[in-house]
Computed example of a mutant assay.
Amino acid sequence: MNIRNPLLVVATAAALTACGGMMRQPMAYSQDTLPDTVKVPSGHRVAMETVGTGQITYECRAKADMAGAHEWVFVGPDAKLWDRKGTQVGRYWGPPATWENNDGSKLTATQVAVAPAGAGNIPLQLVKANPAMGAGAMQNVSFIQRVATRGGVAPAMACGAQNLGQKQVVQYQADYIFWKQG
């Protein structure tokens, strides 16, 4: 190896070391910018952060209590859950809405609140977790937040008697933040 400028090599190595140290310290998740309705109550800590990417299925159905009217109804999600490093750690599917970790632990949850997330995006959401099935990462999760949503809203195409029962799949992405007591 022919090193022409040893000072440049030392400076470059120092810069890379400094950058590497910064990248190992992930930013702490903050609820500060979220609407109060979807904030997790105090006394909880982030246990896991994931990014869900996948699809939501909607079905054209008759509107309840409105004869002759139709609407797109949420049927269920099917998404992969990725950690912040890009490794698949689980999946999210339903019904019922189920978050499952690759270690086999899984849970369902009950919706507590939603808040608008901007045009074309499914709402932000806070759910209270039911007891987990199986030992693993989902054990003792108390709340799950859906934040940073993109896409996922009902199809723009018309829903009427002519396409009653038709299903449409839309793409979406959202961060799912898992919280535990403590």
Rank of each mutant, 00 (worst) to 15 (best):
Q25F: 06
K39S: 02
K39N: 03
P116K: 13
R150T: 10
G90N: 14
D78I: 04
A135R: 10
T87K: 15
Y172E: 00
A79W: 06
S105W: 10
R45C: 05
I3D: 03
W99T: 00
H44V: 05
F143E: 03
N130Q: 15
A174P: 05
C19F: 12
A156L: 08
M27I: 06
Q162H: 09
A79Q: 13
A64P: 03
I122E: 00
V169N: 09
T33P: 01
Q166N: 10
Y58C: 03
Y172K: 08
V10P: 03
N5F: 08
L107W: 14
L107V: 03
R150W: 02
Q111R: 09
V169R: 13
G160E: 09
G136P: 09
V51R: 13
R146D: 01
A14D: 09
A97V: 04
V73P: 02
V170A: 04
V75E: 15
Y172L: 04
V10L: 15
K85G: 11
M133L: 12
G118M: 12
K180H: 06
G68E: 04
G43M: 11
D36A: 12
Q55G: 04
V40M: 08
M133G: 04
A14Q: 08
V169M: 12
H44Y: 13
G94R: 13
M157C: 06
V40Q: 06
G68S: 10
Q31C: 07
A62F: 00
A119W: 07
G43Q: 12
P35D: 15
M133Q: 15
R84F: 04
N5E: 12
Q25L: 12
L34S: 07
V73S: 01
V114I: 14
K85Q: 15
V73N: 01
V127S: 00
L126N: 02
G104V: 06
T17V: 11
T17F: 13
A132Y: 09
M1N: 11
L16G: 11
N163W: 07
M157V: 13
T33K: 06
P131Y: 09
A109Q: 03
Q166G: 06
N2F: 05
G20H: 09
I177A: 10
N102K: 15
L126R: 10
N121E: 00
A18M: 08
S42N: 14
A18T: 12
V9Q: 13
P123M: 10
A97W: 06
M23N: 03
T17K: 05
M66F: 01
G76L: 07
G20K: 03
A15G: 12
V114Q: 07
G20Q: 07
V112T: 05
S30M: 06
A28L: 10
G182F: 09
D32W: 02
T98A: 07
R146A: 01
W179Q: 04
A158P: 02
A28W: 04
G118C: 09
R45K: 14
G94S: 09
P41D: 12
M23H: 04
G136V: 05
A28N: 11
M22K: 10
A11K: 01
A11G: 10
T110A: 14
